[in-house]
Design a protein around this nucleic acid. Structure first.
Lengths: 224, 224
DNA sequence: CAATTTTGTTAGGCCAGTCTAACATTCATG
DNA sequence: CATGAATGTTAGACTGGCCTAACAAAATTG
């Protein structure tokens, strides 16, 4: 069975379960899924039961939610679609990197495998999307991205942004205003734990910025 | 209310009702709609009732089906989406003109108004799609295409194909094999009514072809 | 023009996906 | 470690979109 034959809701559930473990080991909860999808927990609970019946996840009541092999394959395929579409929207249709998430979220359920292949070719087989997230290959391989969370790096080292989480569009627009994007260079001046603030410097723009904890968790960097 | 807020099925119904009167004055029937959409007549009958309840069509039981002003606007918007997407798939993603119909049929329900605008700009505001069908402007205007059905033209005049109906993908593939496409030049040698055959000549390829009635009804030409 | 055939509608059922409300389980903390 | 809070599940209802079966209307035709 191809991923295209799954309902849109099923595709969303699988992708979300997979995504939950991409950047941290904490497993997803029903409540978190419901909140992120904008539905009630009872809906998700029900949906997970249907997914389990189709052999895409394993789940006992009140137990953890795990993707089966098949479920994982479908999830990765959806992630590939999403990230290729985001890249396509930016590179070909001139979208801003902060504008593509919602559009890709809908298109990923509608495009054919053929179209994904053509987009991949047109873009020259990109390996990272506009937020710096790795794009899985057609056979589901994906290279884990380099980098650590900005919140976790030592001060005074030259850094380059490798990834910015696309979870919160408003935050992305804020980052865009500040000039923070993948490949932006910066230095952490200091973490101030009790103020919950990380101060960074953008040497190219000669600008210092204070970031709150959610921002500092959303930005991933590598030494440059 | 925007066309995007309609269900996929509602969008399909409206587009089909509109399309039925684009090339001929015969109004659409419930049975014809059911067949073209691959559902049972009872489903369409029901769907039409829902559309009427939303004020998108007028319909009395056993009566004719007419689009309201709003319904017509939405239908034209869907046609615009469909034709722009077909053009985009051919021009940007390298699809064959005979391959785009089904992909566009799905995408038209998923793309945002923003994306349609960007595609339109990228393509330089095209006025005809790959089959020669006119693309409505953003405000719903569309210039009726020139041309008459091949079945209706006099023999021995130099003609150019302006439009090929995209209703039947198999026929399109057959036309592609024969080298018949929009802008192909040809001459009708003869209509042979009792054999139900129209013989045409392609001067550029020095080739004579016999076409059946459905083919001769699907190809529109203009004097060249 | 009456009978038959064709076409369209209604009734009733099913499924997925959503909801609210009630209930069950697990977790956290005093 | 017991209890209350947080989290998850189930039950029951609703909607849209589909179905089949039964019925109604319209069109065709002998």
């Amino acid at each position: 069975m191809s991923v295209s034959e799954l309902s849109s809701a099923a595709q969303d559930y699988l992708k979300m379960i997979w995504s939950a473990t991409e950047w941290s080991a904490t497993p997803i909860t029903v409540g978190a899924m419901a909140e992120r999808m904008g539905v009630k927990p009872s809906t998700v609970s029900d949906g997970i039961r249907r997914l389990a019946k189709q052999g895409l996840v394993t789940h006992a009541p009140y137990g953890s939610i795990e993707l089966t092999r098949t479920g994982n394959d479908h999830a990765v395929e959806m992630v590939r679609r999403h990230r290729l579409l985001e890249t396509f929207l930016v590179k070909v249709l001139g979208y801003g990197w902060d504008e593509v998430h919602d559009e890709a979220e809908i298109l990923e359920h509608a495009v054919s495998a053929t179209m994904i292949t053509r987009i991949d070719e047109l873009l020259g087989h990109p390996v990272r999307d506009p937020h710096g997230d790795p794009i899985p290959s057609p056979d589901g391989q994906l290279r884990p991205p380099q980098g650590v969370r900005l919140a976790a790096v030592d001060p005074d080292r030259p850094l380059t942004i490798t990834r910015i989480s696309d979870a919160d569009p408003d935050m992305l627009r804020y980052f865009t205003e500040l000039g923070l994007a993948p490949d932006t260079r910066l230095t952490v001046l200091a973490h101030r734990p009790y103020a919950d603030v990380t101060t960074i410097r953008l040497p190219d723009r000669d600008l210092d910025i204070d970031l709150g904890p959610s921002a500092a968790e959303s930005i991933w960097v590598i030494a440059s």
